[in-house]
Design a protein around this nucleic acid. Structure first.
Lengths: 378, 378
DNA sequence: CGCGCATCTGACAACGTTGTCCAGGCTCTA
DNA sequence: TAGAGCCTGGACAACGTTGTCAGATGCGCG
């Protein structure tokens, strides 16, 4: 559960009931500063009018207001007009919490991703949002910051909100905690990385194939000693890309030197050191395959300072890659397509057809811009 | 799997519990496709157990379960253990919708922004999320796509969800539609651009000052004919930056030629044309001030194809700006700080102190990298 | 041994909405 | 003009939770 660390308490105690006249007094005496939260009279949502208030004002029954609000048939134009006027006058807005409680559907879906600020996840998130919007649903999202515990906390908080469905970019590798939720009817789709230890829909890029193609591209340009810098192999995408690298090298009949590989390069400093190491010494690498966009950016910086030209292919496209000297050759994945595909799958689940869990793999695309076509330099 | 000893009270109007064997039957007979939504037995959230179910299984009262779930005092360890076991066994998760309805606080805040996929809003959104998280609240967000109508629709949908507060990056310029909501107690803070026609908190960058500094920087390097390419002036930030441009030029005693200015450059094609126009003809500009990150990127592309070196200063920082040739000089604003400041202000409102609406302006920072220091070339 | 008190527990109502169902008034037809 | 049927409107319960309050239990002390 999420814990409040400040005095803002979502779990507010109920204000003591105060009768109308006392309340008038309060209005005059209580300083402005205490008013916003504890405004009286009426209900706990400030002094928000309810359907009952609207009904009273319009001189109709409660259900008639509900009918008007929901555009249900069976209300004469005259009655409808009176209700509309009352709604207008009171500034009524339906309380969706109550509606949700009654109807059982929240018309919202949750998205658990790694980091909203990462340029890869922005478009993905946006794509999910668009699909949700097309289905009349809102998107609630949160970042796991690559922390499995936080991922779980977030996902379960979303389930407690009774989101209709969940799109998860996994940080952890054990998602059995979602089993009761899925059984209870929460549609669930994993994106970018597969779910751990449960059977669920998953949409991912062809990380293996993309990496293999990227490395093969370097091999085709004459490179033999090719470095690989990637994330921790416990992350599925990183492991797959590494596998692709190994496969391409093997296909070319090259035995990979352990010193050519750097795994778990999670921050710029480590990437920098890794790159510098494999570029120095005897038999330095003549090309580098960068395992993700953050690695690519750092490697570009290192190569910019390096005297000898070194070929580079990066996984994930980066903005302005074409404007650098040389342009950066990348294996691009389509973040928006990942998000869109996952969200669409989610809503297909929600439409009632219980589909067998499926693994959808989207192709990657090699974009040649120059850095990957440099010949080996000694 | 209801406990055999659990008995439903006579007062209980819930549908009669289906016993184990019947339930098994259902599972076998009902086709998979109808199951997810209409699963039996039980309530509308699939077959999600409620506190009542937990209470029955644990052989305690409803309120005792509530107490355990909320960590309230006054439950003997033994009772608590029994309840915990029942919760575990049933996979119970509290329904926050009902809780919200009862308590009046949703512990969630809404964020209406322009486009989640824009690299400027990712960090902003993330910062808001972090603050929300620190206060135990979830973030619901949506993109307005710069459409005022969609902004309103989104904001009001969030209000219907009874978010506790709203952070809005305005697309429109009339926010009176939020008045009833604010009166009803929805904390509201505007970011990046001020609210229109209502009095509310707003957090923004010093667009005017930043642009003036940026243009002054070009002037200091000897430029006289400086172009400005920006967004539609109906967007506050665009108008302010334009004002900064004009002020700097005026300070330098330069009369701005209308042909140096391009407003409403909303897509790359128009930016490109605008840039090409002001770079050609007699008396072309020798420097360009780009009004936002998207414009900057396009202008960089145009300049890359241009024979004569042209100085450039852009508003908003862009990734890899330092790696281009030359590095791109920018007026950087701190998106994360904007988001953080706004969210913190929001929660201060929620803590009960009703603060007078305030306008908070964050400074910008000029980052020199080369492109802004090029001398005028004829 | 009985009384009072503290501690623990549970019945009940309420939150604001929607689904069900019935009443009353209307129109239409025989 | 009466009866059937339709249309509109409203009373009521229910959704799952929490606040209130009173009842039950056990214990210590007079």
């Amino acid at each position: 559960m999420l814990d409040a660390t400040s005095s803002y308490k979502p779990t507010d105690r109920a204000p003591p009931p105060v009768d109308e006249s006392d309340e008038r007094q309060d209005r005059r005496i209580v300083p402005e500063t205490t008013r916003r939260a504890d405004r009286l009279p009426g209900n706990r949502y400030g002094n928000r009018p309810t359907m009952k208030d609207v009904a009273a004002r319009a001189g109709v029954g409660l259900k008639t207001v509900s009918r008007v609000v929901n555009g249900e048939p069976g209300v004469t134009p005259d009655t409808e007009r009176r209700v509309q006027e009352a709604i207008e006058a009171l500034g009524f807005r339906r309380n969706d919490s109550a509606r949700v409680l009654r109807k059982g559907r929240t018309a919202s879906i949750g998205l658990v991703l790694e980091d909203l600020a990462d340029p890869f996840y922005g478009p993905l998130s946006r794509a999910v949002e668009e699909v949700a919007r097309a289905h009349g649903a809102l998107l609630i999202n949160g970042s796991s910051a690559e922390d499995p515990e936080r991922e779980q906390e977030l996902a379960l908080a979303l389930c407690a909100r009774r989101v209709d469905g969940l799109v998860v970019i996994p940080a952890g590798d054990d998602h059995r905690y979602l089993e009761p939720e899925i059984r209870a009817g929460v549609a669930t789709v994993f994106v970018d990385r597969p779910a751990g230890r449960i059977d669920a829909d998953v949409v991912l890029s062809d990380n293996y194939g993309g990496a293999r193609d990227g490395v093969a591209h370097l091999l085709a340009h004459g490179h033999r000693r090719i470095g690989f810098i990637g994330d921790m192999p416990r992350i599925h995408t990183a492991a797959e890309r590494l596998r692709g690298y190994r496969a391409a090298m093997e296909d070319a009949g090259i035995t990979v030197d352990e010193r050519w590989m750097s795994l778990g390069a999670t921050n710029p400093q480590r990437v920098r050191r890794a790159a510098e190491e494999m570029l120095s010494g005897t038999d330095p690498v003549t090309a580098i395959f960068a395992g993700n966009n953050r690695v690519t950016v750092t490697v570009i910086r290192v190569l910019a300072e390096h005297s000898r030209p070194v070929a580079l292919v990066g996984f994930d496209d980066i903005e302005l890659a074409d404007l650098l000297q040389p342009g950066v050759t990348v294996v691009a994945q389509d973040a928006a397509a990942l998000g869109r595909t996952a969200a669409e799958r989610l809503f297909r689940q929600l439409e009632g057809t219980l589909l067998a869990p499926e693994r959808i793999e989207l192709p990657t695309r090699l974009i040649t811009r120059g850095s990957g076509e440099l010949p080996p330099a000694v």
